[in-house]
Nucleic acid binder design. Structure first.
Lengths: 214, 214, 214, 214
DNA sequence: GCCTAATCGAGACGGTACGTCTAGTCTTATA
DNA sequence: TATAAGACTAGACGTACCGTCTCGATTAGGC
């Protein structure tokens, strides 16, 4: 899914692998990972303003030109770093119990957004998206669209089980369910603990005539 | 409330005002407004990255030192510009019809966030808040807290009318109602038209056993 | 004569003088001198390739922008440094004895070109002039033309004394007299000691029927 | 004599020659010539600053590594290009008439230095020699010494004919004769036409009691 | 009607990071 | 074994802004 995120070298075998420092078979995997880790580290340690191309290069032990060869901006690097770390992480379980799955998932989402390291990167990328529509579009097509598809799956499974009517606007329902969590994290800095997420889930269940089993 | 936001000069009279380029009676109202307009204009015309202290100074015909004397950062200038323009704009009407008021208000909110010029500044400030906790805190205390108090008023009036139970967590209810609009604007770029905002209001009304009058 | 070479501050008084670190009265004399000395020092210590804008800035304790504000290239800096040091140095004495004056002057010229620190800068500037016609023109109008006028004075005085015919092409005579010294320094690396310079002077004297008095 | 200047491939036959892009028969003559022509072309078209290893490689359709394998610097390439073109060009004729030969030769020299394409390369190399003593030494041993030997030949023939005394310092005499031409070309940008070169020759002839036949 | 103090426009200053360019080294596949 | 291709580290280039500073001019208010 993610551009420049996987490689044919890294798979399976435990051979040390070739030490490309530049050759005709494309980029150095070593340099790529050093850049992504450096960007990640700088963001966590010094905040967004502390992430600079110059700083990434120095910390990664890489030439600036190597960064510019593969990425266009520091937010582009951060996006790759983010995708590398979390692309597949936030996926809802399917226990057969819709209410339970929703509660667990919203709690995981809230933790991810408000407390995890990748969540900090996510917030930085969302911030950048406010300033730069082109970046926003790329972030959506490289991560958000996929993530929202995963979010939807929760409700789709409930439709499949016959718990929700088949003609429901699942996109709107999902946004209505998850939106308040994003709002509190990005805007109000309000608490997004179990109390709040469960309230959102309960409202959703009630809205559709479902009762929590627990 | 806001530092550096009002002055004793601006009051009442319609005289052209003195042309002091330096005096001992405090700051120049002329310079203050020129700076705020310049910052606003640059943001609208060139985007956030196009707003620089240097650029503001040039466009406002003001010395950089004058800006630094009264503001600390460019986002501080933008915040003042934002407050100057919109501080009081987004206030819900009170028609006595809760359902109607909610629908109107959410539509206004959606328009403000997604389509207005001040909304663009708001999004830039929210973005900055992601990068800078100190700024975030200041933005909340200078605008967001007040705005959320206005948002709450809508529900408080319904409580006063006996339409909602008095022990309701109004903060959580407000966030649940408004959050999805912010989410779509800031994150998904999804549509926030009448269809979506009315759906949010309807869900709220149904949740509390209220029926729309229309 | 030289642009940016003198200042109104430095004259006469022993007051410490104001410590401009940037003000509306124009440039900082302190910074100007630091840049010129740094450039000079780098050339002498590390050779022409060791002179970089970055290096000058660092050694001078000055911002790069300050250099670019007043000079356009590193050779422009070197030219100013050269002019600062030697503009008036190479002037022939007038003892009344043409032969003696010529001999002394050519020896001084040879020493200047081949052995002095400013001579090293001169050779670097002549080198740059080969690569860049615009620079060549500026170097001529800022130094060489003046220097050649001083060279000519030697012969003009002989004309005034009636030792040389008044219709002589003094430019050509001067070039014929001095040229071989430059040739050996710039091209062949041959010796330019007393033996060689005296030979040039003797040939000149003989050519015009003058006899050396010594 | 010159390193990297001849090859065993180029000899004799008029066959189109093998197209080895990688072989085990030593270096590619094709690549060598492409590099020299590219360097030459870049110097003439874009000036010295426009000659870069990268540019030469691109224009020659050659890998940078191939250049570095056979040459150490761009001036080394230019020197080879220069030698390839002009090594033997500037040789004085021997008509038996010393005065005539001198006049013709100095005119050719002046034209070569000031107006020819190889002359432009020569000036670039002399410039580089000012900056880099090692290069200067190599340039002398690879070209200048040989050229000065050819220059001397003119005077040696006059000695052989008995026109000049056998104990003359021919090196000094040659430098005295030619030096002013180099001086005007490299330093003053003065005219080096027939008038000037003839004046130099006449002075030389008069100095040694020779009379021009024409 | 001076003197004083605060603020103004102007702009030079020491810095940091930008994004680009070229240098010179290295690795690989091809011939 | 030499080649074309091209990725790599390194570091200078010239530019844009940052935030600080110093200055002369302007303008009340206090003397």
């Amino acid at each position: 899914m993610a551009r420049a995120t996987h490689t044919t070298e890294a798979s399976g075998t435990s051979r040390p692998g070739p030490r490309h420092h530049g050759n005709r078979h494309g980029r150095s995997e070593e340099a790529r990972l050093a850049v992504l880790h450096a960007a990640d580290g700088l963001l966590v340690e010094k905040g967004f303003a502390g992430v600079t191309m110059e700083g990434i290069a120095t910390r990664a032990g890489v030439a600036k030109q190597t960064i510019y060869r593969w990425w266009s901006t520091k937010t582009d690097v951060l996006m790759d770093a983010f995708l590398q770390d979390v692309a597949e992480d936030l996926t809802a379980r399917d226990s057969g119990d819709t209410a339970r799955d929703l509660r667990v998932y919203l709690r995981e989402l809230a933790w991810f957004l408000s407390a995890s390291d990748p969540g900090a990167v996510f917030r930085a990328l969302i911030a950048q998206a406010q300033h730069d529509p082109v970046f926003a579009q790329e972030f959506r097509s490289r991560y958000l669209d996929e993530q929202r598809r995963r979010d939807r799956r929760l409700l789709e499974r409930a439709v499949e089980r016959g718990e929700l009517p088949p003609d429901l606007d699942l996109t709107a329902e999902t946004d209505q369910l998850m939106g308040p969590v994003y709002y509190r994290v990005l805007v109000t800095d309000g608490p997004v603990g179990k109390e709040f997420t469960d309230r959102l889930v309960d409202a959703f269940l009630a809205r559709h005539g479902l009762t929590a089993k627990s």
